[in-house]
Computed example of a mutant assay.
Amino acid sequence: MKSIVLETAKIKDMFNQLQQNLGGQLNVDSKEHILSLDNEIGCGKIKGQTFKGGLSYLEFDMVFSEDFVLITQTPENSPICFAYCSKGKVGHSFGQSSEVRELETFQTGILTNEPHQDNVLYFKKDVNLITSLIVVSTAGTAATKKNSYNYRMKELFFKDNVSENSLYIGSYNLKIAEKFEELNAISQKGIVRSLLIEGFVHMILALEIQQHSDDLESEANKTGSLSLKEMDAVRELSKFISNYPETQLCIKKLSRMSGLSPSKLQEGFKLMHNRTVTDYIREVRIQKSEELIKNTDLNISEVVYSIGFTSRSYFSKIFKQKYNCSPKQYKDNQNRVAVMA
């Protein structure tokens, strides 16, 4: 078993310690740290970045060759940590002698602890793990301003403004997984990349706080939720619809493909996309049509049929509802810009 103790919460120093202990190649671009590993310890990447306002982001996308334990030491002013597991599972304990609890795929964990308390993360060998940590500082002037999110989070997650050892593990949430996928798909470089990453981190943090609120409400109302297997099926269906928008689909066919009942399908899509299955299919097609109009030489009729619509007039109607112009106007504007360029 490989074990590392991180003696700092600063991203720069943390990654230097990680490289010293794990090896690999460390690259830094616009404050984003990426440690790439392909050695006897494991294969994958560890990424991290600090943003203004005392917010940090850390992601493990790794397959370790042996069981790996990461121990972090908490400072006097304990931060609030939001963890999310996109793939696999990760264990946590307060110190090495207390109970280990596991965060499973699609679950959020919210962690607070006493000052100077060690946090221990457990990664199992030969498991493809993707887990992300968003850390909110409760130190400094930002945490004393009543309108700052640092201060408001202390009020929300600290009891009587004092941090205690606490690990909340939420229900399954696919919306957060979707946002992490979009974050990791960012291809831009430099300042644009940094701004996009920061925007997604703030959005994900909001979703994780909302998940906590929703769970408390669901517990009070004794409402049910989808299982991990059912959530995974909804996620795979969403990917299929996104990849093949031209395919003619109905609830009955999707139900048969996934093994989920129609009611479970609708519940899953409402949870993940905040819309019905039919609305999601339509939204995917409209977004795809905009890409085709903008980036290809297809005429409007060809675009309509390539994304699975059968009525050009219906397509024009919903396109205008979303983009406030007709498909023809949008294409003409694109052509005009191309000529001017």
Rank of each mutant, 00 (worst) to 15 (best):
Lys125Thr: 02
Asn128Asp: 09
Asn128Gly: 10
Leu129Ala: 02
Ile130Ala: 08
Ile130Leu: 14
Thr131Lys: 02
Ser132Tyr: 00
Leu133Asn: 02
Ile134Val: 08
Thr141Leu: 15
Ala143Leu: 10
Thr144Asp: 12
Lys145Asn: 06
Ser148Met: 15
Tyr149Lys: 07
Met153Ala: 06
Lys154Cys: 12
Lys154Val: 08
Leu156Lys: 14
Phe157Trp: 12
Phe157Leu: 13
Phe157Ala: 02
Lys159Glu: 02
Asn161Gln: 09
Val162Phe: 06
Val162Trp: 03
Glu164Gly: 04
Asn165Arg: 04
Asn165Met: 05
Ile169Ala: 03
Ile169Cys: 02
Ser171Ile: 04
Asn173Cys: 15
Lys175Tyr: 11
Ile176Glu: 07
Ala177Tyr: 12
Glu178Phe: 10
Lys179Arg: 04
Phe180Ala: 05
Phe180His: 01
Glu181Leu: 10
Glu181Gln: 08
Glu181Ala: 09
Leu183Cys: 06
Leu183Tyr: 00
Asn184Trp: 01
Asn184Ser: 12
Gln188His: 13
Lys189Val: 08
Arg193Trp: 00
Leu196Arg: 11
Ile197Cys: 01
Ile197Pro: 01
Glu198Asn: 08
Gly199Phe: 07
Met203Ala: 05
Ile204Ser: 02
Ile209Phe: 13
Ile209Gln: 08
His212Gln: 09
Ser213Trp: 13
Glu217Ser: 09
Ser218His: 06
Glu219Val: 02
Asn221Gln: 10
Thr223Leu: 15
Ser225His: 07
